[in-house]
Design a binder for these strands. Structure first.
Lengths: 246, 246
DNA sequence: TCAATAATTAATCAGGCGATTGATTAATAC
DNA sequence: GTATTAATCAATCGCCTGATTAATTATTGA
């Protein structure tokens, strides 16, 4: 990691302007090895992930991330080069993990079920890794909330999602296609689209359903959600794709 | 509309700084009546709606809105008081229209169907106004995209949605409850949540499905979407709410 | 030992932001 | 005809933003 760049130096330099309000931790220079704080890079990713997921990309400033992590803005420029690259790093960090897991779950299901694949089984295999991670802890919950937010965003949201998740989705559809012979691709894609919307809204953690149901349903209650989402989507797939109901 | 506020005046005033790059339209002062541009207020709402829906609240500056509309930032302060109030005005402008229409459609359906209400009928009545408006033209499309974006947003997104749309949703659920006697509220609310996610993603106009399906499905193709979404959701409701399939 | 390199801070740059004021001009009300 | 009110612009305030540099310090490797 080295930076070379040449440019002018202002040379004005008047007014040293000290008077620091909140105690900065160290003096300039590389910190001694036992001054704690290993893996600052990772901590930056953690708080960026949390802030992006809570407030959205545009509402988060790199300075706010730096402040929350107890570092200077320059450290973010040092490890990542720009705000956008910081975001991409956040997004990429967990993408491989979950993609690998999902693909493995789908493959395992397809192998296990053989010719007896069902829509329910395929959808469950597709959803379980994501929902399990969501339930697992704060880091993954923040990440998936972020994914959900990006999924509904214009600009570069679409590309990012496509690049990251399309292969797994195509695998899911291929398996469902075997369970619903005769289903047209158009119908399969639309049905997946609806499932995707249901999943994204569920992961997005607005307290929408909590309010709507006056507390009867809780948006973080994965054990309640998973079987219902599987059944809802499977029934929808069957109907839209023209299979006999039941 | 009057403004009273007292504060200091800087009195520095040096450097008049002219040299305007893009020709400003008029001199200061109220424009003469036939100088075109009636209803500037409405035009501000239009471009704010378009920009908010395309880039999201945080990525849009009031200055950018002013620029696009050919006015000064002060005009936005004049008609609306702050960025947030501008947003609220955008959101509120069409909310009543669509809410009234949706509620009327649900009432009409309930009256028409009497004791023979079906899940399909209720969902169709709920969806049709929104999807029809979406297909109708750019203004409504922008608005509904904005709604979808807000629906997946944290911060104040949840409240805004709740305040605007809960009554209609409760009416929908009440009708479906009649079509599915014995369904528990928990199941009804979760099923609605999934339907809501499918709708929001569809309205959000990311070109997600277009890419995924390699152009086979088009996200703006309402005539294709409507019957499929109705069937998908109705089948899901039946299944989750424990009715016999079919 | 000493040069290279890694990790940090302070300071700054140029520009954008939301908001507000005061002056200015036309329309309207009395 | 004059006072009030409506609608506009130019100018600015104070603050925040992303990005970058130079200096500084510790570690590492030859």
């Amino acid at each position: 990691m080295s930076k070379v760049r040449t440019r002018r130096q202002s040379a004005s330099a008047a007014a040293p302007q000290r008077a620091r309000l909140v105690a900065r931790r160290t003096k300039p220079g590389r910190p001694p090895k036992n001054s704690a704080d290993p893996a600052l890079r990772e901590r930056i990713l953690d708080v960026a992930e949390a802030q992006f997921s809570r407030h959205g990309y545009d509402a988060v400033s790199t300075r706010a991330v730096a402040r929350a992590v107890g570092a200077t803005p320059a450290m973010i420029h040092y490890y990542f080069n720009s705000k956008r690259e910081l975001f991409d790093a956040v997004f990429a960090r967990r993408a491989d993990v979950i993609n690998t897991e999902r693909m493995a779950a789908l493959d395992a299901y397809a192998a296990r079920a053989g010719a007896n694949v069902t829509v329910e089984g395929a959808i469950a295999a597709f959803l379980r890794p994501a929902l399990a991670k969501f339930a697992e802890g704060e880091g993954w919950r923040n990440y998936l909330t972020l994914v959900a937010q990006v999924g509904n965003k214009h600009e570069w949201g679409g590309e990012v999602m496509t690049r990251s998740f399309d292969p797994v989705i195509q695998r899911l559809i291929a398996i469902i296609r075997k369970a619903l012979p005769g289903a047209s691709d158009v119908n399969l894609y639309w049905a997946y689209h609806f499932l995707s919307g249901a999943l994204l809204l569920t992961l997005s953690e607005t307290d929408r359903i909590d309010r709507l149901s006056a507390g009867l349903c809780r948006s973080v209650d994965i054990p309640s959600i998973e079987p219902r989402m599987v059944e809802f989507a499977a029934a929808g797939f069957r109907r839209v794709c023209g299979a006999a109901p039941g």
